[in-house]
Nucleic acid binder design. Structure first.
Lengths: 363, 363
DNA sequence: TTGAAAGCGTTACCAA
DNA sequence: TTGGTAACGCTTTCAA
């Protein structure tokens, strides 16, 4: 029976306790050197002879040694980064895409690189509080702020704490030196969308803009308006976040005179709502009305007709976030092979994915 | 200019360095006591006079003291739990629901309780590797294993490491004492679904089962079959995970003779595929064919018709996970107010959400 | 009820 | 190129 003898073993304090994981003291003893040498060898620092280094590495590997995160953090400060997701349970597709962002970031960080830990908070303010707590507890060395908003409590908190951060999205004002920004070039994509719709012949387009607080919708709307305007088409903007509000906003829009012949939404769920309202009003998509989702997601395939959508290269965005994070955390060895990405970056958005929800306007 | 004077300040080693966050030494000095007393007071341990305790707490609060995670972990072992999500970028709704699980768990853990950190891995094997690494690095005190599978590398790894865990889903065999299990009572829900379909008059039902590796699909299928069988209806099972395979599996099913009059799927995305195939074959849902999604999600509203679905109380599941985690991490103060949930638990699934995709079979 | 001090595992400085 | 050793911030004996 392998019982665990936890408390004070009266005998040799450092000998083989049953489930003890090895420390550098064990490695040093086994290799016949001091802990200093072990530390140097293990961290690839100069000042250790090749033979000693190799022996130490071998012994460490044999013993299955791994650095104790706590000890290392205590001495050198935390190495991990934290990302607090704002999730209120309603933003389905956005939530899933956040995970893809994390996947991309992890990939850029590499397996041996710093860790990115994800947490979830119901509100922006809650996220800010959590980050503040964890910063003062020295739990993380930097934070990733996804979906930056115009007046963002998270950014205010990080600014005040002078904490390093990677911010997804451009924010107004000048940023602290420890910050990096990564954003999506969706303005270009929405400009192309404007051209696309104008080329189809649409002259009255409406944009059902999502949250005013998010920065992306504004940028997108502006780009879309400019592109349409250049071609003699007009854009009407209608606010409507969330399914209910969106439905309430779309109904009068489609019932009134001079109804738009194309509607662009910010996300996939809202586009689904538009499809639904149109159907109830007896409008057939795409013949009576074109609908475009501003964010492509799996749900865009599920609707009838399937939704034409602006791509959302969230994994690529994640890669950029990871690169920026490496930069923020101390610019050491980036994942080799990958071209050392710049700290700040803009991620390109591909061409519109044309599906079944767009057509020329009714004559 | 507030330059940071990092390295060895030759002067008082412990005086006010610019951005130094306070330690218990600072608190002790300010309160005029020793660090031991501070530690006792801060942790609510007996052996400190009420007046001293209060003074210490006040001073700590004034100084904005927070425990340094690393130091505490080094001494007492890690306090946080880790959850590694398996996310391959395809399972949209499942991914979003995983976040709701985390939200629920956090709620049960409470704001001052242990932290739950989420990570993402592309495969089950990758998740197992990560957990093993982090266990040996003493990063986490326990792990949450979501979506346990029948032959799960994660469970094998945790077993081998003798690491505490909360497993979502029942697994065959006997579990280590440090494990807790939380699962969804979807068998009951699928039994009710069987009754519902039989009562509508369906006699030929098909189940489009998801991954064979996941445990839930089997349990669900068995319960559905039993309930249908009791009422003289039959269930045909068809394998088909992922959109393409599902479509390929459904097409012959609906084209052949004796086609089922109702199809049940495991998740929302697959149900959407079924709707699509049915439409292409000229079958109108729900009049020619009823469709039920085995997992309710936001996407179920987006389809035409909207999908009747089995509820998926993932937040409640998360609450149970959080309670189990508290139990595993050392059974200390659970979030007060909440009735101390048992370590192992089964979460009830509510009644079928009937929407537009179900009707009596065609005469 | 309080204080002094020994760790926890690593890193990094200073001497040898 | 190596070894000894003092931090890092906290918890927890053991004495006073």
């Amino acid at each position: 029976m392998v019982s665990s003898s936890r408390p004070n073993d009266p005998v040799h304090p450092h000998t083989t306790r049953p489930d003890r994981r090895p420390t550098i003291v064990d490695v040093a003893r086994a290799a016949g050197v001091s802990t200093a040498v072990v530390s140097y060898a293990l961290n690839g620092r100069p000042g250790v002879s090749a033979s000693t280094r190799e022996r130490v590495l071998r012994v460490a590997d044999e013993l299955g040694w791994r650095p104790a995160t706590a000890a290392r953090s205590l001495r050198s400060g935390p190495a991990a980064a934290g990302l607090v997701l704002v999730h209120d349970g309603r933003n389905g597709a956005r939530a899933a895409s956040a995970l893809d962002l994390v996947v991309g970031a992890q990939e850029a960080l590499g397996v041996d690189g710093p860790t990115l830990a994800v947490h979830v908070a119901p509100t922006v303010a809650g996220a800010a509080t959590l980050m503040e707590t964890w910063w003062t507890e020295r739990r993380y060395a930097a934070f990733v702020v996804p979906h930056a908003r115009s007046d963002d409590a998270r950014l205010a908190a990080l600014r005040r704490l002078n904490a390093p951060a990677v911010v997804v999205g451009e924010v107004p004002g000048v940023s602290p030196p420890g910050w990096r920004h990564v954003s999506l070039d969706d303005a270009a994509a929405f400009a192309r969308l404007g051209s696309f719709l104008a080329d189809l012949g649409h002259t009255r387009v409406a944009m059902l803009a999502g949250s005013e607080e998010l920065l992306a919708p504004r940028r997108r709307t502006a780009a879309l308006r400019a592109a349409l305007g250049e071609r003699g088409a007009s854009l009407r903007t209608v606010a409507g976040e969330g399914a209910d509000k969106a439905a309430a906003a779309v109904r009068p829009l489609l019932s009134g005179p001079d109804r738009p012949t194309a509607i662009v939404t910010d996300d996939d769920a809202t586009a689904g709502v538009v499809l639904d309202v149109a159907r109830r009003l007896g409008l057939s998509v795409p013949w009576d009305l074109s609908v475009v989702a501003g964010t492509d997601a799996a749900a865009c395939h599920l609707t009838t007709p399937s939704l034409t959508a602006v791509p959302f290269p969230v994994r690529e965005l994640g890669l950029a976030v990871g690169a920026a994070l490496l930069d923020v955390l101390g610019g050491d060895t980036p994942a080799r092979g990958a071209p050392t990405a710049p700290g700040n970056g803009t991620v390109a958005v591909g061409n519109l994915v044309v599906r079944g929800s767009t057509a020329p306007p009714p004559s």
